[in-house]
Nucleic acid binder design. Structure first.
Lengths: 153, 153
DNA sequence: TCTGAAAAAGAATTCGG
DNA sequence: CCGAATTCTTTTTCAGA
Protein backbone atom coordinates (compact mmCIF):
# COMPACT_ATOMS: atom_id res chain seq x y z
CA UNK A 1 0.00 0.00 0.00
CA UNK A 2 1.59 3.22 -1.14
CA UNK A 3 0.82 6.55 -2.72
CA UNK A 4 0.02 4.99 -6.07
CA UNK A 5 -2.47 2.56 -4.54
CA UNK A 6 -4.20 5.46 -2.83
CA UNK A 7 -4.40 7.28 -6.15
CA UNK A 8 -5.99 4.22 -7.74
CA UNK A 9 -8.51 3.98 -4.90
CA UNK A 10 -9.44 7.63 -5.23
CA UNK A 11 -10.02 7.34 -8.96
CA UNK A 12 -12.22 4.30 -8.39
CA UNK A 13 -14.16 6.18 -5.74
CA UNK A 14 -14.87 8.93 -8.21
CA UNK A 15 -15.93 6.49 -10.88
CA UNK A 16 -15.85 2.76 -10.21
CA UNK A 17 -16.22 2.00 -13.91
CA UNK A 18 -13.04 3.70 -15.10
CA UNK A 19 -10.87 1.44 -17.18
CA UNK A 20 -7.47 0.25 -16.10
CA UNK A 21 -5.86 2.06 -19.01
CA UNK A 22 -7.53 5.31 -17.99
CA UNK A 23 -6.19 4.90 -14.46
CA UNK A 24 -2.77 4.12 -15.88
CA UNK A 25 -2.64 7.30 -17.89
CA UNK A 26 -3.93 9.40 -14.98
CA UNK A 27 -1.24 8.22 -12.59
CA UNK A 28 1.59 7.73 -15.07
CA UNK A 29 1.98 4.01 -14.60
CA UNK A 30 1.89 1.20 -17.11
CA UNK A 31 -1.28 -0.76 -17.72
CA UNK A 32 0.07 -4.07 -16.38
CA UNK A 33 1.31 -2.37 -13.22
CA UNK A 34 -2.10 -0.84 -12.54
CA UNK A 35 -3.80 -4.11 -13.35
CA UNK A 36 -1.63 -5.98 -10.83
CA UNK A 37 -2.15 -3.40 -8.14
CA UNK A 38 -5.88 -3.39 -8.66
CA UNK A 39 -6.06 -7.16 -8.34
CA UNK A 40 -4.13 -6.97 -5.08
CA UNK A 41 -6.41 -4.26 -3.76
CA UNK A 42 -9.43 -6.41 -4.58
CA UNK A 43 -7.99 -9.71 -3.38
CA UNK A 44 -6.66 -8.15 -0.20
CA UNK A 45 -10.08 -6.84 0.72
CA UNK A 46 -8.95 -3.22 0.57
CA UNK A 47 -11.68 -2.64 -1.96
CA UNK A 48 -14.82 -4.08 -0.48
CA UNK A 49 -17.04 -3.76 -3.52
CA UNK A 50 -18.11 -1.56 -6.39
CA UNK A 51 -21.57 -0.05 -6.11
CA UNK A 52 -23.86 1.86 -8.44
CA UNK A 53 -25.54 4.62 -6.48
CA UNK A 54 -29.14 5.01 -7.56
CA UNK A 55 -30.73 8.45 -7.23
CA UNK A 56 -33.44 8.12 -4.59
CA UNK A 57 -35.41 11.08 -5.95
CA UNK A 58 -35.91 9.25 -9.24
CA UNK A 59 -37.77 6.57 -7.36
CA UNK A 60 -39.78 9.04 -5.33
CA UNK A 61 -37.76 8.17 -2.24
CA UNK A 62 -37.75 11.65 -0.82
CA UNK A 63 -37.68 11.07 2.90
CA UNK A 64 -34.54 10.28 4.91
CA UNK A 65 -34.81 9.50 8.58
CA UNK A 66 -32.71 8.26 11.46
CA UNK A 67 -34.47 5.95 13.84
CA UNK A 68 -33.27 4.80 17.22
CA UNK A 69 -34.51 1.52 18.61
CA UNK A 70 -34.29 -0.03 22.01
CA UNK A 71 -34.71 -3.78 22.28
CA UNK A 72 -36.18 -5.39 25.35
CA UNK A 73 -33.63 -8.14 25.75
CA UNK A 74 -30.62 -9.59 23.95
CA UNK A 75 -32.59 -12.68 23.03
CA UNK A 76 -34.62 -10.67 20.51
CA UNK A 77 -31.49 -9.59 18.67
CA UNK A 78 -31.38 -12.29 16.03
CA UNK A 79 -34.96 -11.80 14.96
CA UNK A 80 -34.53 -8.05 14.85
CA UNK A 81 -31.39 -8.29 12.72
CA UNK A 82 -33.17 -10.57 10.26
CA UNK A 83 -36.00 -8.06 10.02
CA UNK A 84 -33.55 -5.23 9.35
CA UNK A 85 -31.85 -7.19 6.58
CA UNK A 86 -35.19 -7.89 4.90
CA UNK A 87 -36.37 -4.29 4.83
CA UNK A 88 -35.01 -2.48 1.79
CA UNK A 89 -35.97 0.91 3.16
CA UNK A 90 -33.55 0.39 6.03
CA UNK A 91 -30.18 1.16 4.47
CA UNK A 92 -28.02 1.04 7.56
CA UNK A 93 -28.20 -0.43 11.03
CA UNK A 94 -25.61 0.23 13.72
CA UNK A 95 -25.44 -1.36 17.13
CA UNK A 96 -24.89 1.33 19.71
CA UNK A 97 -23.25 2.05 22.98
CA UNK A 98 -25.73 4.12 24.91
CA UNK A 99 -29.31 4.86 25.58
CA UNK A 100 -30.75 3.15 22.51
CA UNK A 101 -29.54 -0.17 21.12
CA UNK A 102 -29.68 0.48 17.38
CA UNK A 103 -29.61 3.36 14.96
CA UNK A 104 -31.24 2.88 11.56
CA UNK A 105 -30.84 4.98 8.47
CA UNK A 106 -34.05 4.94 6.49
CA UNK A 107 -34.86 6.20 3.03
CA UNK A 108 -38.49 5.96 2.08
CA UNK A 109 -41.12 7.62 -0.06
CA UNK A 110 -43.18 9.75 2.24
CA UNK A 111 -44.51 10.26 5.71
CA UNK A 112 -47.10 7.62 4.94
CA UNK A 113 -44.55 4.94 4.01
CA UNK A 114 -42.42 5.91 7.00
CA UNK A 115 -45.45 5.39 9.19
CA UNK A 116 -46.03 1.95 7.72
CA UNK A 117 -42.38 1.03 8.26
CA UNK A 118 -42.55 2.31 11.81
CA UNK A 119 -45.55 0.09 12.43
CA UNK A 120 -43.71 -2.92 11.04
CA UNK A 121 -40.75 -2.09 13.28
CA UNK A 122 -42.94 -1.71 16.34
CA UNK A 123 -44.45 -5.10 15.71
CA UNK A 124 -41.07 -6.86 15.75
CA UNK A 125 -40.85 -8.81 19.03
CA UNK A 126 -38.76 -7.05 21.65
CA UNK A 127 -38.90 -3.55 20.19
CA UNK A 128 -39.58 -1.41 23.19
CA UNK A 129 -39.00 2.16 22.29
CA UNK A 130 -38.27 4.10 19.12
CA UNK A 131 -37.27 7.63 18.32
CA UNK A 132 -37.44 8.99 14.79
CA UNK A 133 -35.58 12.00 13.48
CA UNK A 134 -36.50 13.24 10.03
CA UNK A 135 -33.91 14.80 7.74
CA UNK A 136 -34.93 17.82 5.70
CA UNK A 137 -32.00 17.71 3.32
CA UNK A 138 -28.66 16.05 2.83
CA UNK A 139 -25.60 18.26 2.90
CA UNK A 140 -22.96 15.59 2.31
CA UNK A 141 -23.18 11.97 1.37
CA UNK A 142 -19.93 10.11 0.89
CA UNK A 143 -20.30 6.41 0.55
CA UNK A 144 -16.79 5.35 1.36
CA UNK A 145 -13.98 6.44 3.60
CA UNK A 146 -11.28 8.40 1.84
CA UNK A 147 -7.85 6.91 2.47
CA UNK A 148 -5.46 9.48 3.84
CA UNK A 149 -2.46 10.24 1.69
CA UNK A 150 0.05 7.54 2.28
CA UNK A 151 3.73 7.41 2.82
CA UNK A 152 4.39 4.29 4.92
CA UNK A 153 4.24 0.44 4.68
CA UNK B 1 -38.10 2.42 -16.66
CA UNK B 2 -39.27 -1.14 -16.47
CA UNK B 3 -38.43 -4.50 -14.96
CA UNK B 4 -35.36 -4.91 -17.13
CA UNK B 5 -33.95 -1.55 -16.08
CA UNK B 6 -34.43 -2.51 -12.46
CA UNK B 7 -32.56 -5.74 -13.09
CA UNK B 8 -29.71 -3.80 -14.65
CA UNK B 9 -29.61 -1.46 -11.67
CA UNK B 10 -29.52 -4.34 -9.23
CA UNK B 11 -26.66 -6.03 -11.02
CA UNK B 12 -24.70 -2.78 -11.01
CA UNK B 13 -25.40 -2.37 -7.32
CA UNK B 14 -23.90 -5.77 -6.66
CA UNK B 15 -20.87 -5.03 -8.80
CA UNK B 16 -20.54 -1.71 -10.55
CA UNK B 17 -17.73 -3.05 -12.72
CA UNK B 18 -19.69 -5.79 -14.48
CA UNK B 19 -19.47 -5.61 -18.22
CA UNK B 20 -22.42 -4.87 -20.43
CA UNK B 21 -22.14 -8.29 -22.02
CA UNK B 22 -22.27 -9.95 -18.61
CA UNK B 23 -25.41 -7.98 -17.76
CA UNK B 24 -26.86 -8.93 -21.14
CA UNK B 25 -26.41 -12.63 -20.53
CA UNK B 26 -27.79 -12.41 -16.98
CA UNK B 27 -31.02 -10.78 -18.05
CA UNK B 28 -31.42 -12.39 -21.47
CA UNK B 29 -31.16 -9.25 -23.51
CA UNK B 30 -28.84 -8.38 -26.36
CA UNK B 31 -25.66 -6.43 -25.71
CA UNK B 32 -26.72 -3.33 -27.69
CA UNK B 33 -30.05 -3.24 -25.88
CA UNK B 34 -28.34 -3.29 -22.49
CA UNK B 35 -25.83 -0.72 -23.65
CA UNK B 36 -28.62 1.64 -24.72
CA UNK B 37 -30.54 1.18 -21.51
CA UNK B 38 -27.47 1.76 -19.42
CA UNK B 39 -26.69 4.99 -21.22
CA UNK B 40 -30.22 6.18 -20.61
CA UNK B 41 -30.01 5.30 -16.93
CA UNK B 42 -26.79 7.27 -16.65
CA UNK B 43 -27.87 10.24 -18.75
CA UNK B 44 -31.23 10.42 -17.01
CA UNK B 45 -29.59 10.67 -13.62
CA UNK B 46 -31.14 7.43 -12.41
CA UNK B 47 -27.64 6.20 -11.73
CA UNK B 48 -25.96 8.90 -9.75
CA UNK B 49 -22.44 7.48 -9.80
CA UNK B 50 -20.33 4.39 -9.43
CA UNK B 51 -18.30 4.13 -6.24
CA UNK B 52 -15.57 1.83 -5.00
CA UNK B 53 -16.21 1.07 -1.35
CA UNK B 54 -12.95 0.96 0.57
CA UNK B 55 -12.80 -1.27 3.64
CA UNK B 56 -12.42 1.06 6.63
CA UNK B 57 -10.79 -1.62 8.78
CA UNK B 58 -7.90 -1.86 6.31
CA UNK B 59 -7.13 1.75 7.03
CA UNK B 60 -7.52 1.37 10.78
CA UNK B 61 -10.77 3.29 10.67
CA UNK B 62 -12.48 1.28 13.35
CA UNK B 63 -14.77 3.79 14.98
CA UNK B 64 -18.16 4.81 13.65
CA UNK B 65 -20.13 7.54 15.37
CA UNK B 66 -23.22 9.63 14.90
CA UNK B 67 -22.92 13.20 16.04
CA UNK B 68 -25.72 15.71 16.45
CA UNK B 69 -24.94 19.37 16.19
CA UNK B 70 -26.93 22.44 17.02
CA UNK B 71 -25.94 25.69 15.39
CA UNK B 72 -26.46 29.02 17.09
CA UNK B 73 -27.94 30.89 14.14
CA UNK B 74 -28.68 30.38 10.47
CA UNK B 75 -25.91 32.79 9.55
CA UNK B 76 -23.29 30.23 10.60
CA UNK B 77 -24.65 27.65 8.20
CA UNK B 78 -22.43 28.35 5.23
CA UNK B 79 -19.21 28.17 7.22
CA UNK B 80 -20.33 25.00 8.94
CA UNK B 81 -21.22 23.31 5.64
CA UNK B 82 -17.82 24.20 4.21
CA UNK B 83 -16.16 22.69 7.25
CA UNK B 84 -18.18 19.49 6.88
CA UNK B 85 -17.20 19.17 3.23
CA UNK B 86 -13.53 19.58 4.07
CA UNK B 87 -13.43 16.91 6.77
CA UNK B 88 -12.89 13.46 5.25
CA UNK B 89 -13.85 11.69 8.47
CA UNK B 90 -17.35 13.15 8.17
CA UNK B 91 -19.01 10.92 5.60
CA UNK B 92 -22.55 12.21 5.84
CA UNK B 93 -24.29 15.33 7.00
CA UNK B 94 -28.05 15.70 7.16
CA UNK B 95 -30.00 18.81 8.03
CA UNK B 96 -32.66 17.93 10.55
CA UNK B 97 -36.11 18.81 11.67
CA UNK B 98 -36.00 18.77 15.42
CA UNK B 99 -33.94 19.35 18.48
CA UNK B 100 -30.55 19.37 16.79
CA UNK B 101 -29.80 20.99 13.45
CA UNK B 102 -27.47 18.44 11.86
CA UNK B 103 -26.62 14.78 12.11
CA UNK B 104 -23.15 13.66 11.05
CA UNK B 105 -21.94 10.18 10.29
CA UNK B 106 -18.31 9.87 11.25
CA UNK B 107 -15.80 7.14 10.59
CA UNK B 108 -12.46 7.62 12.27
CA UNK B 109 -9.53 5.70 13.68
CA UNK B 110 -9.99 5.72 17.42
CA UNK B 111 -11.35 7.53 20.43
CA UNK B 112 -8.34 9.81 20.21
CA UNK B 113 -9.01 10.86 16.62
CA UNK B 114 -12.72 11.27 17.40
CA UNK B 115 -11.75 13.57 20.23
CA UNK B 116 -9.61 15.66 17.92
CA UNK B 117 -12.42 15.86 15.37
CA UNK B 118 -14.86 16.84 18.12
CA UNK B 119 -12.54 19.64 19.13
CA UNK B 120 -12.33 20.86 15.56
CA UNK B 121 -16.12 20.77 15.33
CA UNK B 122 -16.54 22.65 18.58
CA UNK B 123 -14.27 25.37 17.35
CA UNK B 124 -16.38 26.02 14.24
CA UNK B 125 -18.20 29.34 14.79
CA UNK B 126 -21.80 28.89 15.83
CA UNK B 127 -21.56 25.32 17.06
CA UNK B 128 -23.49 25.42 20.27
CA UNK B 129 -24.15 21.91 21.39
CA UNK B 130 -23.09 18.46 20.28
CA UNK B 131 -24.11 14.96 21.15
CA UNK B 132 -22.04 11.96 20.11
CA UNK B 133 -23.26 8.39 19.88
CA UNK B 134 -20.66 5.70 19.28
CA UNK B 135 -21.47 2.59 17.26
CA UNK B 136 -20.10 -0.72 18.48
CA UNK B 137 -20.72 -2.60 15.27
CA UNK B 138 -22.48 -2.29 11.96
CA UNK B 139 -25.28 -4.73 11.25
CA UNK B 140 -26.23 -3.52 7.80
CA UNK B 141 -24.63 -1.08 5.43
CA UNK B 142 -26.28 -0.58 2.07
CA UNK B 143 -24.95 2.31 0.09
CA UNK B 144 -27.82 2.79 -2.28
CA UNK B 145 -31.56 2.50 -2.26
CA UNK B 146 -32.88 -0.65 -3.85
CA UNK B 147 -35.48 0.10 -6.50
CA UNK B 148 -38.70 -1.76 -5.88
CA UNK B 149 -39.68 -4.27 -8.49
CA UNK B 150 -41.32 -2.38 -11.26
CA UNK B 151 -44.37 -2.78 -13.33
CA UNK B 152 -45.43 0.72 -14.40
CA UNK B 153 -44.26 3.64 -16.61
C1' DT C 1 8.79 -4.26 -9.32
C1' DC C 2 8.13 -1.80 -13.35
C1' DT C 3 8.21 -1.06 -18.61
C1' DG C 4 7.16 -1.74 -23.37
C1' DA C 5 5.57 -4.29 -27.06
C1' DA C 6 3.03 -7.88 -29.14
C1' DA C 7 -0.43 -11.28 -29.30
C1' DA C 8 -4.79 -12.94 -27.96
C1' DA C 9 -9.13 -12.43 -25.95
C1' DG C 10 -12.96 -9.91 -24.92
C1' DA C 11 -16.14 -5.99 -25.03
C1' DA C 12 -18.53 -2.11 -27.11
C1' DT C 13 -20.35 0.24 -31.07
C1' DT C 14 -22.51 0.50 -35.37
C1' DC C 15 -25.93 -0.56 -38.49
C1' DG C 16 -29.11 -3.33 -41.54
C1' DG C 17 -33.13 -5.68 -40.72
C1' DC D 1 -34.88 -5.00 -30.10
C1' DC D 2 -31.64 -8.50 -32.57
C1' DG D 3 -27.41 -10.19 -34.75
C1' DA D 4 -23.23 -9.81 -37.09
C1' DA D 5 -19.23 -7.19 -38.39
C1' DT D 6 -16.11 -3.76 -37.18
C1' DT D 7 -13.56 -1.33 -34.00
C1' DC D 8 -11.86 -0.47 -29.64
C1' DT D 9 -10.25 -1.95 -25.22
C1' DT D 10 -8.33 -4.99 -22.06
C1' DT D 11 -5.60 -8.73 -20.59
C1' DT D 12 -1.84 -11.58 -20.72
C1' DT D 13 2.74 -12.63 -21.59
C1' DC D 14 7.56 -11.95 -21.55
C1' DA D 15 12.21 -9.99 -22.29
C1' DG D 16 14.86 -6.48 -20.38
C1' DA D 17 15.88 -2.85 -16.95
Amino acid sequence: MDTLDVKILKLLQQNARVTVSEIASQINLSVPAVSDRLKKLEAGGIIDKYVAIVNPARFQKELTAIMFISLERPKFTEQFVEFVQREDEILECHYLAGDYDYALKIITRSAATLERLLNRIKSVPGVQKTRTIVALSTVKNNHSIIPEDYSGE
